[in-house]
Amino acid sequence: RESVPDWLDEMGVKELGEEVWEKEIHALNQQAPVVLRTNTLKTTREKLQQELQKEGIETEFIKGYPDALQLKERANVFKTEAFKNGFFEVQDASSQLVAEFLEVEPGMRVVDTCAGAGGKTLHLAALMDNKGQLIATDIYANKLKELKRRARRAGAHNIEPRAIDSSKVVKKLYGSADRVLIDAPCSGLGVLSRNPDAKWKLQPEFIETIKQTQEEILKTYSKMVKDGGKMVYATCSVLPSENQEQVEKFLNSEEGKNFSLKEEKKILSSETGYDGFYMALLEKQK
Score class of each variant (00 low, 15 high):
Pro5Asp: 01
Pro5Lys: 06
Leu8Arg: 05
Asp9Val: 02
Val13Leu: 03
Glu15Met: 10
His26Arg: 15
Leu28Ala: 05
Val35Arg: 01
Thr38Pro: 02
Thr40Leu: 02
Leu41His: 09
Thr43Glu: 01
Glu46Ile: 12
Lys47Ile: 15
Glu51Val: 13
Gly56Asn: 09
Glu58Phe: 11
Gly64Ala: 06
Asp67Trp: 00
Ala75Phe: 10
Gly86Ala: 04
Glu89Cys: 01
Asp92Asn: 06
Asp92Val: 03
Ser94Ala: 09
Val98Asp: 04
Val98Arg: 04
Cys114Ala: 14
Gly118Gln: 14
Gly118Ser: 11
Thr121Asn: 10
Leu127Gly: 07
Asp129Gly: 12
Ala136Trp: 02
Asn142Ile: 03
Asn142Gln: 09
Lys145Pro: 00
Lys145Arg: 08
Glu146Asp: 09
Leu147Cys: 08
Lys148Met: 11
Ile164Val: 14
Val170Pro: 00
Lys171Ala: 09
Pro185Thr: 03
Gly190Trp: 13
Val191Glu: 08
Ser193Met: 15
Lys199His: 02
Leu218Gln: 11
Met224Pro: 04
Gly229Met: 10
Lys230Gly: 04
Met231Tyr: 08
Cys236Met: 12
Ser241Cys: 05
Glu242Val: 12
Glu242Thr: 14
Glu255Cys: 05
Gly256Ile: 08
Lys266His: 08
Lys266Tyr: 08
Thr272Phe: 01
Thr272Glu: 00
Tyr278Trp: 12
Leu281Trp: 08
